[in-house]
Design a protein around this nucleic acid. Sequence first.
DNA 1: ATCGATTAACGTCAAAATTACGTTTAATAT
DNA 2: ATATTAAACGTAATTTTGACGTTAATCGAT
Lengths: 245, 245
Amino acid sequence: MLHKKIQNISVDCVVFGYDTKTKSLNVLLIRRYLESQDKAEVLVDDHVITGYHMYEHETLDETATRVLKELTGLTNQYKKQFKAFGDPDRLTGEKDLLWINNEKFNHRTITIAYYFLLKTEEVDINNNQYQANWFPVKDLPNLGFDHEQIIMEALENLKTKCLSEPIIFELLPDRFTINEVQDVYQSILNIELDNRNFRRKLISKKCIIALDEKQTGVSKKPSQLYMFSKDVYEKLFQKNYLISI
Amino acid sequence: MLHKKIQNISVDCVVFGYDTKTKSLNVLLIRRYLESQDKAEVLVDDHVITGYHMYEHETLDETATRVLKELTGLTNQYKKQFKAFGDPDRLTGEKDLLWINNEKFNHRTITIAYYFLLKTEEVDINNNQYQANWFPVKDLPNLGFDHEQIIMEALENLKTKCLSEPIIFELLPDRFTINEVQDVYQSILNIELDNRNFRRKLISKKCIIALDEKQTGVSKKPSQLYMFSKDVYEKLFQKNYLISI
DNA sequence: ATCGATTAACGTCAAAATTACGTTTAATAT
DNA sequence: ATATTAAACGTAATTTTGACGTTAATCGAT
């Protein structure tokens, strides 16, 4: 089946992962590198998030899912459509006339931007055609197009969203420690939290379930492992109408 | 100057206003009505939000602002881009092949949806080419295209947003009573609040300033009038990182 | 077997915020 | 004067937050 591209609409995906070792919130980026024909000059050398044109038959969500699958092999990840970007000049920087795989690119393109949350350990970043790598959001490389803006707005949305919905667990292994949860919040929000208060608050939630398991192989007091129960969360959920202007 | 339309991208605008008399959150809708050539049949009779194609030179925000200005004459209103809608079949219902002013319409169109908040009393809804009218969000008429979905998602976004940002005052006159503010929250969130607790909490905010003025012409105890100071709000603002999953 | 290093995990108290209620007050209309 | 109406005030119990210091469990080195 031949799919017809919609030339002026793309979906871009900011892929967030969390590294428990370095306690860093990371973004998956691919490298763009292009030399002039005589190899005398480097025309493009930067990083971008992944995106692609929509096909005529797709919904926006389907395009986003397809883009993620091509990059990571994963489906069924948490995704959020957070904003459309469409400034007339967003792709018209001179070097930006060249697209990732040498397709020429001179349309004005509106992009619908999504972010995905996934568990870093489930991704094999080399299992695709791209040179993909994780980069800390606090230390991003040189980014092409308007992708720095897109990533920053994704992060802003994530910051707000993680305060009111339990999406943080999308970034952690199924079994995690309380301190790991705290670390993720701290990485996303860029703040410090008091461990004792955080622990008390989190453990008090019915949807945070202590397992009969502890960390092993660490030369210190081993941590208790917990899981998040989406079922319990949804059963007990009640919207909190706290007005805090 | 001739502006070139982008055929497959539009911006749709959900316009919210609040009626202090009826204590109702309203949406501004325009009527679509079309008969067959022999007038024997009503082809279209429903309501829609306003939208229009982007022009090549415009940013998304500019398109939204233009659409609102044509409809209401107003500029500089609070606006929020909240979601893009692009299902392949979103406009292909039979009757939907006809656009509001008889332009034929058979492209697949992605629409970037905004909502606006404005003070009802500042709008003259008859000052344009459309048959525009206010409708309570709790009692919407038959809506064309996917506009019911768009309005409902706008409302969801507004519900969340008004809890953490002082956008509620965009819907009220510059001088308002505490009870009016409570009424707006109740209309948007569709809940009841305790007046004594709400009043205490709101008055305690530095950005809510009591005026040397009371309501006049009412045969009861007159209300104290207040204003909202954006300056004070922004000066004292500090992000509240309350995790409430 | 003991000790040191390391990080997990517990506990307390004061202050602040929330919740759930009843009563008083200021205006107009009769 | 008095009735009507909605505004505005008050208080006490409970819950949540914020700011702290101390104890506990494991591994590895001796």
